[in-house]
Design a protein around this nucleic acid. Structure first.
Length: 1025
RNA sequence: GCCUUGGUGGCGGAAUUGGUAGACGCGCUGGAUUCAAAAUCCAGUGUCUUCGGACGUGUGGGUUCGAUUCCCACCCAAGGUACCA
């Protein structure tokens, strides 16, 4: 009986579904194990072979853990809100829900045929109202919370209100907006309800804020940085403007330090941790305030410009002879953040970001025109452009001066686009001797570069090494090291009230509003401009139906098209917009939530996905706790994986979850790249003067010969000409004209052109199925091509539809089966490495499965008649070697090597003619996580009536592996020359004696006496001589 | 520029603590079987070679009896990130 994988796979997939073999229970005596693959966005293109890689790995580990006696939770679902479905809706009018449903069905079908051990009863879809009810719920929880820096956790907003009522906000240390004014308890209690709400909004973990966005009026939509090229929209090339919009934001910055610290306690890939660390971007330094000097108080002639080359030096000179001692009326202050406050005496200018709010206020009349022109020019450049362009130095002097907090000397204030408004305070104190960018800027604009480092040459470049230097020319900091100077300067800054030690983070709060249709609606309505939350009992607030999925003509988000999108607080339901009276009926929020909203707690929802009263029950979360193994792509490093950690920490603070990190171990599977196929074609131009019915005309025809390089060289020129004429004749025939050729000219060039051919027409030997290719839509242009060789050459590229290199798993399953595909995906190489796909190699694992099947044939065809053999010592050794290796491999996620181990094992057992159940039964279990269908079938053929899924994993026993002798490699000066079988219980000296006595040793030494003999018992012998 | 990962036959890759480099598979070559093909099976397959050997894990050094593995410098590739003060 042959290995009929189609029948076997269909049979067991049906069996698992009917018997709910992989349904996980929320209480069990067994230890729990939660294995999770990142859920997919169900795109219209379906799965290609790259997608299942991570799923297969998770599945193998899940099945392994089940064999090991764990209660395994292995769920799957869909991240089903997203842009493609919305864009499809815009184009076709089809509701995104329908597109999504269709795509999910296709995904489900494809996933099912791969034999995953998913607990489908727990499937979630983020676009399902029963699911997004809880996304809305979390939003409300965040709204009702503030971050208390004293307790270092999120707390309910009620605790903040009671502090306000008793003490005002002076004692509160919270993560909040910067512009909160101090108030007393009395003032608070006197505030109106609206004022109170306005203040609280500045403290909430999700809050409304005016955020700058890239607004494209023509498209009526906000664009991401990616979508803007050269200042215009990528789509359509429309102008884009920076515009302030009121949007929901998430106060993720409150968690910056905890998100950083938490990385130490989780087993995630270091590169991923690094990118989160960089993203959060912690830097330690100080904030320093500089007073801006009054223009009138400055000596005449101080206001200069680029043309005034002497501006700085003259300013310094003058200030030195005439120290400004009169108290000044400081209208403005500039706050900077610096990581090097110790270099404060090296400051020779300041630079503000062109967008800095003080720019307009402090610029002198003389400099106004120049500054404005520069600001305008900068605004036209995208943030990306500005950042990418490191080489160009540009800036403008504002004409204003700041006062050095210690020396009281005037410091010219410049603006420059190398300073970013979005980082720190948008202003820097420039220390040219210690920072290369400041140095370059100073050199370019001829600004003074004072040297404040002892014995350091700064004539060529700045000196940025902070550890190995001593500060000089710095008043009270002279002679101090970086460390000591840091401490001293911060104390001094605090003493004079000009600054303090500060930790700055690059991380910014996350904008949470999207002007899209296909996303979660906010459970928010507005009373008098203040956001109000809808009560949990009235959730979910379902997406309204709209006529159009585009923004409205007035530029409102797509939900603005809904006619029924108002909230009645009496009946607690959505009603027509016409009923809005701002008494009982209020407008609802028009934005929707971003893509990451639905994916930030889905792993917890899987624990109790059908619960309609809570996001999950306390029992469920207490049992499952957290994800033990999470596998997915590294592209989510700073998106999904950062936001999820943020929400998890919030949920932890609020006592909803027991762990403040949601995934203990995470693995990034590598990308599977495609192997594109190309043919080389030789081009021959044929020009003919022909006589047709209407007269004489000239026809040009390009004959193509698809062939490989080698065989082209075999052609004589004459052959090529003959072929060209033949092709031309065929072409004319096809045109259906009766034509007389009067004159024909052909031009054979040696140019080859690559023709991209779809990989599905290329076989294991890189040969193109020419017939199938030319008959397909892809090959119609090559109909008249002459094919001599059908050999293709291959190139590795990202898998993509347009590159004709996408390999679909369906066809492979059909031809080789799911077990072959699973094995092959694992066999390709290390899980975390990116590697090219080449379907050709699958025959190797497929024939392995056939050999495996054959090994069990006595049990399959019944020829053994019950009299199976006792296992031999050889059999047991082979088996236990395999058990050991496979177990180690699975624990180390080294799935590729265990597939080779299986191959070796089966090859050996076949050679040993093993027919022992005592060997074949454990072997079936070993194989089962990798190739579950065939394992189940073999298991049942061995006489079992239960599924193999819960069969205990074979126990490795060392005793079967014990060897009595070892074939020692004998090397001379480190090079292995021959092998010698010796008993393992020999002592070092005995081994040495035995080796030296050997004739081959003498042969190698050729009479020389060995200088040294190294004997590592059980490993190697090395003779130096 | 910085961070991360990697560089081993024609290809994917193996070598888990420094100890026989190239496991396993693909491909290729030859053979068996077949009317033929597919499938299957057997043998061979790092490079060079004067057939003794020599050389070989990106390059150049170093440590060591011994280095793909450890150290230093450099080159290349992929991914990420960026004027971060």
């Amino acid at each position: 009986m042959n290995y009929d994988f189609r029948e076997i796979e269909a049979k067991w997939q049906k069996y698992w579904a009917e018997n709910e073999t992989f349904k996980a229970s929320n209480n069990s005596e067994k230890p729990k194990f939660y294995a999770l693959s990142m859920f997919p966005y169900p795109s219209g293109a379906g799965l290609h072979v790259g997608h299942p890689l991570g799923y297969i790995a998770t599945d193998i580990y899940s099945r392994y853990k089940r064999h090991k006696g764990f209660n395994v939770l292995h769920p799957m679902g869909y991240d089903s809100f997203g842009l493609p479905a919305e864009q499809y809706a815009i184009q076709t009018g089809q509701h995104p829900a329908i597109t999504t449903e269709n795509n999910i069905n296709r995904y489900r079908e494809q996933l099912n045929q791969l034999g995953f051990s998913f607990d489908w009863s727990r499937e979630v879809r983020t676009s399902n109202p029963q699911y997004y009810k809880w996304t809305q719920w979390i939003f409300i929880q965040l709204f009702n919370a503030w971050y208390n820096k004293k307790s270092d956790k999120a707390e309910n907003i009620s605790t903040l209100i009671s502090i306000f009522e008793k003490e005002g906000n002076a004692t509160v240390e919270a993560a909040c907006d910067d512009d909160v004014a101090t108030f007393t308890a009395g003032e608070w209690n006197a505030y109106s309800e609206k004022e109170k709400q306005g203040i609280l909004l500045k403290y909430r973990l999700t809050y409304l804020a005016d955020t700058e966005v890239n607004w494209c009026p023509a498209l009526g939509t906000v664009l991401a940085n990616d979508e803007i090229v050269n200042g215009v929209s990528e789509r359509g090339g429309h102008p884009v403007v920076r515009k302030k919009m009121t949007q929901w934001s998430m106060r993720i910055t409150a968690y910056a330090q905890r998100l950083l610290d938490g990385l130490d306690n989780i087993d995630w890939p270091q590169p991923l941790k690094d990118s989160q660390t960089n993203w959060i971007g912690r830097s330690v330094g100080a904030s320093v305030t500089f007073n801006v000097l009054d223009a009138e108080s400055l000596p005449a002639g101080q206001a200069g410009s680029r043309s005034d080359q002497d501006v700085t030096s003259s300013a310094v000179e003058k200030s030195q002879e005439n120290v400004i001692s009169t108290p000044l009326n400081h209208l403005y202050q500039i706050e900077v953040f610096t990581t090097r406050p110790d270099t404060i005496f090296g400051v020779s200018f300041m630079t503000l970001a062109p967008e800095h709010e003080l720019v307009a206020k402090i610029t002198t009349p003389e400099q106004k025109a120049e500054v404005e022109a520069y600001v305008e020019a900068t605004a036209k450049r995208s943030e990306r452009d500005r950042m990418a362009d490191v080489k160009t130095i540009s800036g403008v002097f504002t004409g204003a001066y700041a006062e050095h907090p210690f020396t009281k000397e005037p410091i010219p204030i410049w603006i420059g686009d190398y300073v970013l408004a979005s980082y720190g305070t948008g202003a820097v104190m420039a220390v040219p001797c210690g920072d290369q960018r400041d140095y370059d800027f100073a050199k370019y604009y001829d600004i003074d570069i004072p040297n404040i480092f002892e014995g350091v040459d700064i004539s060529e470049e700045a000196f940025a090494d902070k550890e190995s230097t001593i500060i000089a020319n710095s008043n009270f900091l002279n002679g101090l090291s970086y460390k000591d100077a840091m401490k001293k300067i911060i104390t001094e800054l605090e003493n004079i009230g000009h600054g303090k030690g500060k930790v700055n983070y690059r991380l910014r709060d996350a904008v949470f509003s999207r002007q899209r249709y296909w996303g979660e609606p906010f459970p928010v309505y507005y009373v008098d401009g203040m956001p109000q939350m809808i009560d949990l009992e009235h959730l979910p607030l379902e997406l309204p139906e709209v006529e159009k999925y585009l923004p409205t003509e007035t530029g409102e988000p797509p939900l603005g098209n809904a006619t029924d999108w108002a909230w009645n607080i009496e009946t607690n339901e959505v009603v027509s917009n016409d009923l809005i009276d701002n008494v009982n009926v209020f407008p609802l929020e028009l934005n929707t939530m971003p893509g990451w909203a639905g994916s930030s707690q889905y792993f917890n929802r899987y624990m109790d996905p059908r619960n309609d009263d809570a996001i999950f029950s306390p029992e469920a979360i207490n049992y499952w706790q957290d994800v033990d193994l999470y596998i997915g792509g590294s592209e989510h490093a700073t998106g999904h994986l950062l936001y999820s950690r943020f929400w998890q920490k919030f949920m932890f603070d609020m006592g909803y979850v027991t762990k403040d990190e949601f995934a203990q171990k995470l693995i990034n599977q590598g990308m599977i790249t495609g192997t594109s196929a190309f043919m080389l074609r030789k081009i021959i131009d044929v020009n003919a003067v022909v006589k047709v019915d209407s007269g004489v005309e000239e026809i040009a025809f390009q004959a193509t010969i698809i062939t490989d390089v080698d065989s082209v060289l075999k052609y004589e020129e004459a052959d090529l000409e003959r072929i060209a004429i033949e092709q031309f004749d065929k072409f004319l025939l096809e045109e259906g004209q009766s034509i007389e050729i009067l004159e024909i000219n052909y031009n054979t060039s040696n140019m080859h052109l690559s023709v991209r051919v779809p990989v599905e027409f290329v076989n294991a030997s890189d040969e193109l199925d020419v017939q199938a290719f030319v008959n397909s839509p892809y090959g119609k242009d090559y109909k008249y091509a002459f094919f001599d060789s059908n050999k293709t050459y291959r190139e590795i590229e990202k898998m993509s539809k347009s590159k004709y290199n996408v390999v679909n798993p369906d066809a492979i399953c059909e031809e080789y089966g799911a077990d072959s595909l699973r094995l092959y995906e694992m066999f390709l190489g290390p899980l975390e490495q990116s590697k090219p796909w080449n379907t050709a190699g699958i025959t190797g694992v497929h024939s392995f499965l056939k050999k495996l099947w054959k090994l069990y044939s006595p049990f399959i065809d019944g020829s053994l008649s019950g009299a199976e053999a006792e296992p031999t010592a050889e059999n047991l050794k082979t088996l236990h070697k395999t058990i050991k290796k496979v177990e180690e491999d699975i624990e180390n996620f080294s799935f590729n090597t265990s597939v080779s181990t299986f191959m070796i094992c089966v090859n050996k057992l076949t050679a040993q003619k093993c027919t022992s159940k005592a060997i074949l039964e454990p072997l079936a279990i070993l194989v089962s996580p990798y190739a579950p269908h065939i394992a189940e079938e073999l298991w049942s053929r061995l006489g079992h009536t239960e599924s193999i899924a819960e069969a205990p994993f074979p126990k490795f026993e060392e005793k079967y592996l014990v060897e009595s002798s070892k074939e020692y490699p004998i090397s001379f000066n480190g090079k292995m020359r021959f092998k010698l079988e010796l008993p393992l219980d020999m002592s070092k000296d005995e081994i040495e004696a035995a080796v030296l006595a050997h004739e081959k040793t003498q042969e190698q030494l050729q009479g020389r006496a060995p200088k040294k003999v190294i004997v590592v018992p059980g490993k190697i012998v090395n003779i130096v001589g």
